[in-house]
């Protein structure tokens, strides 16, 4: 029976953002011109990527199941980073500067910079570096970190509507990309992108963080915000054409369903959150459990194989 399918073509693709430096390893994020995995309607020149997250100091509140795969390496961020790359196949690392947060010791930049430099030296993979999450401390620490990593083309974060100037100025000066965050709100997402771009920041060096919420804790809000953002970008809204980054690992492992249940459930919680975000248009996932990350990488391979029999 002849059928008339509707193939929606986009007029304006998502930006491609490079992280890392050529000569070493570079990854390109984004660039798609269709809703996720609809290859008849457009391209996804760059498969979504999975980064593994590490902390700059030993995690204080991680559940047993999340500690198990890493063992003692958790005590040494550089060893942990190397393990992620060598044993767990991470092509990108995300370092969360937890130790700089007042709750975890208020460490200064000169404490974390040598750690970051060693990680770059030992792993040579592109790096995402995010602050401890305390605005005041981040604004003191991150500029120094940015400067120390000048030329590495890292992805730095996190800039928000109320706290973006310091980070954007320093990332701009040192040639890094930036994460622009908004609280599950498409208008604020656009606003932060505009504010940062207005400072002279290249829009092709911005990733959007629409806020991550775990499976069972409002995942669907983020899912729909991402779909709305994407649809707007595809019809030409340049200030929403940034790739999406999602911190699925930290959010999934915050939930009691992941922390307190039998081992498989935590990993599955992270996988399910990740898959949902990929189906909503995620370009870069920051994950925690190596087994979850590996399965999500395999999943991406399967769906990117668009239409091939498997």
């Amino acid at each position: 029976m002849p059928i008339e399918l509707i193939k929606e073509k986009c007029s304006s693709p998502i930006n491609s953002v490079e992280i890392g430096v050529s000569g070493k390893k570079v990854v390109t994020i984004g660039g798609e011109s269709a809703m996720p995995f609809l290859f008849d309607e457009g391209n996804m020149p760059n498969a979504p990527r999975v980064a593994l997250e590490i902390l700059d100091s030993e995690p204080a509140e991680w559940p047993e199941e999340l500690i198990r795969p890493f063992g003692d390496s958790l005590k040494d961020p550089v060893g942990w980073a190397v393990k992620c790359v060598k044993d767990f196949g991470a092509g990108i690392l995300c370092v969360r500067l937890q130790s700089t947060h007042p709750d975890y010791g208020s460490k200064d930049a000169d404490h974390v910079i040598p750690i970051l430099k060693s990680i770059i030296k030992e792993t040579a993979v592109p790096l995402i570096v995010i602050g401890g999450g305390d605005d005041e401390r981040d604004n003191i620490v991150l500029p120094k970190v940015s400067q120390a990593l000048k030329g590495e083309n890292c992805l730095l974060g996190i800039a928000t509507q109320n706290n973006y100037k310091t980070l954007a100025a320093t990332a701009l000066a040192d040639g890094h990309s930036i994460i622009a965050e908004s609280p599950i709100d498409i208008n604020i997402a656009k606003q932060v992108n505009i504010l940062i771009s207005d400072m002279g920041f290249n829009p092709h060096k911005i990733l959007m963080h629409p806020t991550t919420t775990s499976l069972g804790y409002g995942m669907e809000y983020v899912y729909s915000i991402m779909e709305r953002g994407r649809l707007a970008a595809f019809i030409g809204d340049k200030m929403l054409a940034m790739p999406f980054i999602l911190f699925v690992g930290s959010e999934a492992w915050k939930t009691k369903e992941a922390k307190e249940a039998a081992s498989a459930q935590g990993v599955n919680w992270e996988i399910t959150t990740a898959v949902s975000m990929l189906q909503a248009g995620a370009d870069l996932l920051v994950m925690r459990h190596p087994e979850a990350a590996e399965n999500v990488r395999k999943y991406i391979e399967i769906v990117m194989n668009g239409g091939g029999k498997k």
Partner: peptide, 17 residues
Amino acid sequence: GNGLAKTIQDFTYARRA
């Protein structure tokens, strides 16, 4: 029998049609 990748595409196109 088309596997994951093709099936989710077809589901979307069918819903649209």
